[in-house]
């Protein structure tokens, strides 16, 4: 009986087999650069630049990591800055984005169209162009020797307002009406009704924000003049030892350290997102 059941399950699965194999092949292709990055960080310098390259370290070593942590440039200072800046940006964006998205989604007011046009048009202005003027603004405010120039300019997340507004619109108006009848304040409505229903969207937006801020390189390059305020992305060029000709194993090790936290947070958040999406899908 059991054998028959297994056989049936296998037969049911068969049509998916080809598709799944293809998926695994694609996954391997996608993951390969990661794999490459990780194993290079465990090689010695000589083996890292060897030709032809080896697919598995001949001499598995922690040399690169040891060098990084024993350098006189403080890894932890950079890491700490990354953490503070990223947390700051996410908090600031939530504070600004949530009320705005709520207003655009559920409230009617005079000049709504104009406000919306202003928000959308901000999408068209390229970030690279704004480096110099914003630097001048921050400089005049005396904020350059601090972490603020990396946090404040990113306060308004237009794409986030977009997505959150879409999610808020899904909330039925009747819920809001009945809440208002129960004399709930607007704040309570947002916190108790809107946000929980838009959880998936909010988590996604925060995740994207986290990734974007954690990985940003050129912005802090322009805005910081001192190790005290530099984030982890700028740490890589310090381990490069470019005069020696790019210590690849150290560079990859620094990259692994840079990607590590993001990967962990993503794995944690993606489960929540997938569950949230699946919940939303059941209609």
């Amino acid at each position: 009986m059991q054998q028959l059941q297994l056989k049936r399950r296998f037969v049911n699965y068969l049509p998916n087999l080809f598709s799944d194999l293809l998926k695994i092949a694609c996954v391997l292709v996608f993951i390969f650069p990661f794999y490459w990055m990780i194993i290079t960080s465990f090689k010695t310098y000589g083996e890292a630049i060897q030709v032809p390259p080896t697919l598995w370290p001949k001499n598995f070593t922690l040399e690169a990591y040891h060098n990084i942590f024993s350098m006189s440039i403080s890894f932890w200072q950079y890491a700490q800055n990354s953490i503070i800046v990223t947390a700051g940006v996410i908090i600031l964006q939530c504070l600004i984005m949530i009320p705005a998205a709520y207003a655009f989604a559920k409230r009617q007011f005079v000049g709504k169209g104009i406000a919306w046009a202003v928000v959308i048009s901000a999408l068209m202005i390229p970030g690279t162009c704004t480096y110099v003027p914003i630097y001048m603004v921050m400089a005049k405010a005396g904020l350059i020797p601090s972490l603020w120039p990396q946090i404040i300019p990113h306060g308004c997340n237009v794409f986030g307002i977009f997505m959150l507004r879409q999610a808020f619109k899904q909330v039925p108006d009747e819920l809001l009406e009945s809440a208002r009848l129960d004399s709930a304040t607007e704040a309570q409505i947002v916190l108790r009704i809107m946000l929980p229903m838009a959880k998936a969207a909010l988590i996604t937006i925060c995740l994207f924000s986290f990734i974007g801020t954690w990985n940003s390189y050129f912005w802090p390059l322009v805005m910081t003049n001192n190790d005290k305020y530099r984030p982890l992305t700028m740490y890589i060029e310090r381990v490069q030892d470019a005069d020696v000709g790019n210590k690849w194993n150290q560079v990859m090790a620094a990259n692994v350290l840079l990607v590590g936290p993001v990967l962990l947070i993503y794995l944690f958040a993606s489960q929540k997102i997938i569950r949230a999406f699946t919940y939303n899908g059941v209609k």
Binding site: A100, A103, K112, V119, A122, P133, I152, G155
Partner: peptide, 30 residues
């Protein structure tokens, strides 16, 4: 009601004004 709604979107618009639109004006000058 209108004022309250505007208060909700004002922070976003202010940030955009300072960090997106003002630089554009500055760039035209430059």
């Amino acid at each position: 009601n209108n004022l309250f709604s505007w208060a909700l979107v004002l922070p976003a618009i202010l940030f955009l004004a300072v960090f997106t639109f003002y630089p554009l004006v500055n760039l035209i000058q430059l």
